[in-house]
Structure formats: structure tokens, C-alpha cells
Design a protein around this nucleic acid. Sequence first.
DNA 1: GCAAGGTC
Length: 613
Amino acid sequence: MKIIITEKPSVARDLAKVFGATTKRDGYIEGKGYSFTWAFGHLLQLAPPQEYGYIGWKVKNLPMLPQKLKLSVRKIRTNEGMIEDPSVRKQLNTIKALFDIATEIIVATDAGREGELIFRYIYHYLHCQKPFRRLWISSQTDAAIKDGFRNLKPGKDYDTLFYSAHCRSESDWLVGMNATQALSISAGSKTVLSLGRVQTPTLAMICARYLENKNFIPQTYFQVIISLQKDGQNFKAVSKKNYYKREEAEEVLNAVKSVADGFATGGDISKVETKTKKEQPPLLHDLSSLQQEANKKKGYTADETLAILQRLYEEKLITYPRTGSQYIGDDVFETIPQLIEKQQQHPFFSKQAIVLANNKLNKRSVNAKKVTDHHAILPTGEPARNLSPDKQVLYDMIIGRMLEAFHEVCVKDLTKITIESGSTFIANGTVIRSAGWRAVYNEPEENDQDQPENNTIPKVSEGESLAIIEKSIAEKQTKPKPLYTEASLLKAMETAGKEIEDEELRYAMKGSGLGTPATRASIIETLIKRSYITRKKKNLLPSETGLAVYDIVKDKLIAQAELTGQWEKRLEEIRSGASVKAFKEEIKQYTRKITEELLIAGKELELLLEDQG
DNA sequence: GCAAGGTC
């Protein structure tokens, strides 16, 4: 019996179907000499400190540096505290029984670092010794699966990938557990003050933005606005300069030769520039972009969106949602015309679905090289009837984005007119020549409010003089960067590291950022659970505790996105063959250092937390 | 009581 193990049940079902295996057993599917079993994510986790004899949270235990970290079965929280998850234990027993009778093991967990770790942890925990081969595919179409099985790789080809995954896992444990205990103990052990490679830089971003916003001193400035007329059509122009004194603006205003001042045509057109701009459609959705859209448009939290998507996925209405790729491969692209055709009955999108059916599809979102473990989120094409309102909203966002992504470019004429009337004024106009993908939602763009755009601008030419029928002064204020919302925080986590100065570290974080698509929502929830941050309307605000923790760690490496960059660089080196030993030693050193620092620094928090009661 | 990672 050949045993295939996947990361999650849905993949096992897809593989079994291709092989024609149809007998459903408890925890696996059987047929044609194969058994397809599965994990559900990580079944095993690094054992908590008490399993090494570090009982209670005590300074004498710190830093906790066990000789060897152990694995233990995933736990769930119950009224009696943390217990082994019985469904996980049961599935491990199923996997063990299958491994015991296996003539061959084929590893089909997701094609990535964590997928490798999910299998290796199971394999080691079960003390399995049998050789295994690796399936490495990034789409679940029949063709991709068949091709993948014809090209199974020796398991050992992925040993270094496992080493890098293992280092990631152990390093997060060592730094996170020790830093958390050190800070919590030295602050008086009244509450859990957690710290970690991902959560602490995330907290730092929220706090830094909050303080920047709070301490921002707005500056008043003035613009002079004129209204011109041509052939009975009005449009606005704004002074080229901003003025910081009202008197200056008034001088400029007074110099404007308006009709009221006795000038029938006091606005001289000195320049007309028109250029055509092609605007590509947005890419297909990945989890993060969808969470951002759902937060902006509907106020859903990242966590809520993920939960709703999981239900849509379990009902087989959408493809795998926890993806970090906004692309699909050519094999999936072949199925797109049918998926679009199915939307021709859609109450809102039918018209554009019909338009698309008759158009050549835009292939901007088609790039097999940019498909990582999973491709972009798509509908499966299964009929979606009677969805709850929440599900309908997200399902429609996925459909809408699919239609946009395969649509034609939007073509616009951008016109910039320069007008002289005492001083220089600028009018900007945008005319959409061909809406392309923008026809899907048909929503106006968000404009830069400093430069009002005229949706239509009459045809004018250089040398013409137009009537100025109105003039006024607009008083404005400079604005701080806005507080983070979940949408902007997700974006910031994704792109964290883009500003890192060291080129190598910046490169190492490219395409990863802080956390992963699957974990960002839970990182935000952790910060809320610790009372580090609160939600206020759409904004995320730091609490007193959050700010106090930030103040203690803000200059330390643990609060910087660079830490992830440094690790990613080393982990990639390990994946390509570098020694694990040196990195592990550095992590130990860093653990000792940060633990020692926090045991001292946390004392500053003790009084503050007492004050809060 | 604690990390970050995965998923029902």
C-alpha cells in the first residue's frame, strides 16, 4: 500500500480523485492500491516550557535553553485548561497505522517551507524510518497532479528546506518564550506581556504611527481657486503655489482678472498638455488584498474575513483562501472562460461577464513563476445559492475582482491646463476614453483632495483667453499620516522591510514581510487579547500598556522588522546548504541578551501597571 | 499564562 499524506483534507480529496480512489475511510481515502491521508495544518508543536521542567514563571529558569526542543500534540483550550486536541491525536493514530503498513510514503504537504515542516514533525514524532518521496506542485488541476506524480523527488532533496523550517520554528520559540517571560516577570507578573518576532514589530508600527499622528502639528496653508468658463461649461483651477500667509494669498487673489473685476476674458491659457494613460487592472485577490478590501468597504476585521472565507472554502465555493499569491498558472487560466461564463446570470456582474466573454482576456494575473504554495483566490464554479449576507459579500468581491483582473486596461486622457491671471493656475482634467476593467464596479477613483480633478474639461487651446467667473481663497491644513486601520496595517505588515537600508536584508524579506497571509489576522487578534491595542471604529489604537511596552522595546532588535529580514537571509542560506549550527548558536546568544535586558527594563513597567489597577 | 506557524 502506497501512502500519500497531504497538509489538509481538501488536497487529499483532489489527489484521490485523480487516482480514482473513492473508498472513504475514517481519516483517509482508499483505492487502486493507494491511501490518501492528511494532516490539518501543524498537528505537532514545540512543547511548552513546563514539559522541560521549567515550572512556573521564574527568573531562575531564564533563559530557557533546552538541549533539544520536543514535539507535543497540538493543544486546545478548554474549561480545565489546555488539553491535547483529541481529533489531532486520532488523526495521528490513523497516520501511524498507515505508515506502518506503507510500502512507500509520498509526501504531498504544501510545496513550501512550512509544508515540509508539517510532514517532518509528524514523521519524527511517529519515529517513522521508511523512505519517502516528495510531490511538489503548486496547483491542484488534474494535469498538474499527474505531472507531479511522474516527477516525484527523493525526500532527501528537501532536507535543507526542513532544516531551515526547523530553525524558524525553534528560533521563534526560544526568543518568544524567553522574552515574554522575562518582560512579564520583571513587570511584576500581573499580566502576560508577550513579545515575539512578528507581534512586537507589528505593535511597534501601530504605536509609532499613533504617536506621530498625535504629535503632529498641522500647518495652515492657502490656495487660490478660480472658476473658468468655456462654451457655457465651468471648470476649476488652483494656484500653482500654496501660500502660508493669508496676506500672500490675498495679493494673488486680488491680481486675478475676473469678470467681476472688469475683465471679460482674464484667464490666459499658456499651456495645454494632454496625455493618454493606460491603467492596468488590479491583480486577482490573495488573502491579504481581500482582507484589505473587506475592511475598507465593509469594516470586516481580518479575522472575520478569514473565518467567512474558510466557510466558503469548506463549502467548495472558492479555492484555497490562505494564499499569498495574486497570480495563477496557465493550467488554471484555461478554466477562467468557463468561470466567467457562469457569472452571466449574476445580478450585479452579469453585464461585464458578458462583455468579457466576448473579449480577449488580460493575462496580467497569469504567471506560473509567481504562484507560490497556492494560486490566487478564485470561485470554483460550483453554484452558490442562498449564501448568508456575509458570505455573499466576500464571494462577490472575489467574482468582481476576477472580472476586473481579466478585463482590458482602462484608458484615460489626462489634461493639464496652465492658466495665467496675475499668477499661475493649474487645472487638471481626466476623461475616461475606455473604462475597461473600471466598468466592473463603475466607481469613481479616490482623488488627491489637494488637486481637485475636473471630470470633464472643455476643449481649450494655448493662447485662448477665458472668462474667470469666480475666485476665492481656500484655507487648508496639512494632515498627519492616518492611524492604522486593519486594512492599512495588513498592507504595512506585507510591505514591512521595504524601507530597510541594508540591501541584503531588504532582499531577504522581499515577498514575505511580517508574518504570513495565514497568520496576520491572528497576530492582530493576539495584540488585542493582550490589551496592547484596541479597535476604535476602523482604527487600531495602542493602549497605555501597549505604549509602555513599546517604549521599553522600541530600540531593541525584537521590535524591528529587520529581525525577520536577518532570519530570512540566514534561513535561505541554510536551505541552500549552509550550516545550521552557527545560526542556532547566534539565536541562543541573542536569547540570552534579550532576556537579560528585559529582566532589567521591565521593572519600569511595574509601577505603571499598578497605577492602572 | 508564553511564539509563530499551519488549518478544522
